[in-house]
Amino acid sequence: MDSAWLVPLALAFGLIVGAGVVLILLLSMRRGQRAMDVASTAVPDGVDQVIDALESAGVVLDPSNNVVKASPGALSLGLVWNQALVHPELVALVDRVRRTGDAATQELELARGPFGEANIHLFVRIARLGARYILLLAEDRTESYRLDDVRRDFVANISHELKTPIGAVGLLAEALQAASDDPDTVRRFAQRLTKESERLARITQEIIELSRLQAADALSKPDVVEIDHVVTLAVDQNRVAAESHRIEIARGGDKHAEVYGDESLLAVALHNLVANAIQYSPEGSRIGIGVNNSDGIVEIAVTDQGIGIPEEDRDRVFERFYRIDPARSRHTGGSGLGLSIVKHVAQNHGGDVRVWSQPGNGSTFTIRLPEASRAPVSPPAIATLKEA
Score class of each variant (00 low, 15 high):
residue 268 V to C: 10
residue 280 Y to R: 05
residue 300 I to Y: 02
residue 328 R to I: 08
residue 254 D to Q: 07
residue 273 L to F: 07
residue 269 A to G: 07
residue 318 F to S: 12
residue 299 E to P: 00
residue 289 I to R: 01
residue 333 G to N: 08
residue 330 R to N: 12
residue 307 I to E: 14
residue 317 V to E: 02
residue 256 H to R: 10
residue 268 V to K: 08
residue 266 L to P: 00
residue 338 G to T: 05
residue 270 L to S: 02
residue 274 V to E: 02
residue 314 R to M: 14
residue 291 V to L: 07
residue 324 I to M: 13
residue 309 I to T: 11
residue 265 L to I: 10
residue 263 E to H: 08
residue 298 V to F: 03
residue 282 P to M: 12
residue 276 N to G: 13
residue 265 L to N: 11
residue 280 Y to D: 04
residue 340 S to V: 02
residue 320 R to Y: 09
residue 273 L to E: 01
residue 284 G to K: 11
residue 337 L to Q: 01
residue 340 S to C: 11
residue 326 P to E: 11
residue 264 S to F: 13
residue 256 H to A: 14
residue 291 V to G: 03
residue 335 S to F: 05
residue 321 F to Y: 15
residue 313 D to P: 02
residue 254 D to V: 09
residue 296 G to P: 00
residue 298 V to Y: 00
residue 328 R to D: 08
residue 300 I to A: 03
residue 256 H to L: 12
residue 273 L to W: 04
residue 327 A to S: 13
residue 278 I to R: 04
residue 324 I to L: 13
residue 311 E to Q: 14
residue 301 A to V: 07
residue 263 E to S: 12
residue 300 I to Q: 04
residue 264 S to L: 12
residue 315 D to S: 15
residue 274 V to K: 01
residue 338 G to D: 05
residue 320 R to N: 09
residue 282 P to H: 14
residue 319 E to C: 08
residue 273 L to H: 06
residue 290 G to S: 12
residue 302 V to A: 06
residue 287 I to N: 00
residue 303 T to G: 06
residue 261 G to M: 10
residue 278 I to Q: 04
residue 281 S to H: 03
residue 319 E to G: 12
residue 274 V to Y: 05
residue 319 E to W: 12
residue 295 D to E: 10
residue 315 D to C: 09
residue 339 L to Q: 01
residue 277 A to F: 06
residue 314 R to F: 05
residue 334 G to I: 05
residue 257 A to E: 01
residue 287 I to T: 04
residue 279 Q to S: 11
residue 302 V to C: 07
residue 275 A to I: 06
residue 320 R to K: 15
residue 259 V to W: 01
residue 313 D to M: 09
residue 282 P to I: 13
residue 291 V to E: 01
residue 283 E to P: 02
residue 313 D to C: 12
residue 287 I to K: 01
residue 259 V to S: 01
residue 295 D to I: 04
residue 284 G to N: 07
residue 308 G to C: 10
residue 325 D to F: 12
residue 258 E to Q: 14
residue 273 L to D: 02
residue 294 S to M: 07
residue 315 D to F: 13
residue 339 L to P: 00
residue 293 N to L: 08
residue 270 L to T: 04
residue 269 A to D: 05
residue 291 V to S: 02
residue 307 I to S: 13
residue 325 D to N: 15
residue 298 V to L: 05
residue 319 E to R: 15
residue 280 Y to H: 11
residue 328 R to E: 15
residue 305 Q to R: 13
residue 331 H to F: 14
residue 255 K to D: 10
residue 274 V to M: 06
residue 303 T to K: 08
residue 279 Q to F: 09
residue 262 D to R: 06
residue 265 L to P: 01
residue 271 H to W: 13
residue 258 E to D: 02
residue 306 G to R: 00
residue 316 R to Y: 15
residue 258 E to P: 00
residue 262 D to N: 13
residue 304 D to N: 12
residue 258 E to S: 06
residue 275 A to L: 07
residue 266 L to A: 10
residue 326 P to D: 09
residue 339 L to H: 01
residue 287 I to W: 00
residue 259 V to R: 01
residue 255 K to Y: 08
residue 319 E to N: 15
residue 271 H to Q: 15
residue 265 L to Y: 05
residue 276 N to R: 05
residue 310 P to W: 10
residue 331 H to R: 15
residue 329 S to M: 14
residue 269 A to Q: 06
residue 314 R to V: 07
